[in-house]
């Protein structure tokens, strides 16, 4: 049971107990990228009529959960040094932006506005590129 408890605490982007703030930030950026990147695949498939409406809804729900979890996990880790604070100030708006963009796409798909969802791919790509760049710069 103790091992199970340890294992549960290791999930999310807090990472290993030996992880620094920068390590956790990179993991959260990666989680954000996983969510946004997957959503782009979903939108592309939806646009080409390859997904069922219910499956789109379920897959987008998973994406929202991943992105929100990354933001919550990151917010739950307090920066202690000035370097940590700089990382926080760099990544927090990115994750926030990612969650907002994802919510917009979800709304467009929920209302059946496929054209708007396709248009929203460009802002998604931009935030995705910035998340990837953050992870690569600080890995």
């Amino acid at each position: 049971m103790a091992l199970l408890a340890v294992a549960v605490t290791l999930t999310g982007c807090s990472g290993s107990p030996f992880a620094s703030y920068a390590d956790s930030a990179v993991l959260c950026a990666q989680e954000g990228h996983n969510a946004v990147g997957t959503l782009r695949v979903i939108v592309g498939s939806h646009d080409r009529g390859r997904l069922l409406p219910a499956s789109t809804e379920a897959a987008v729900h998973d994406v929202v959960a991943t992105a929100t979890s990354a933001l919550d996990q990151f917010d739950g880790t307090e920066p202690v040094s000035p370097d940590d604070r700089r990382l926080h100030d760099e990544l927090h708006p990115l994750l926030h932006d990612a969650v907002a963009r994802i919510a917009e796409v979800q709304e467009a798909l929920d209302t059946g506005d496929t054209a708007r969802a396709a248009v929203l791919d460009e802002p998604l790509r931009r935030v995705d590129d910035r998340l990837v760049a953050f992870a690569e710069d600080h890995r």
Partner: peptide, 12 residues
Amino acid sequence: GIEVDQLSQTAL
């Protein structure tokens, strides 16, 4: 560079 952590991603 997308990691998988949902079952829906396996089906996609």
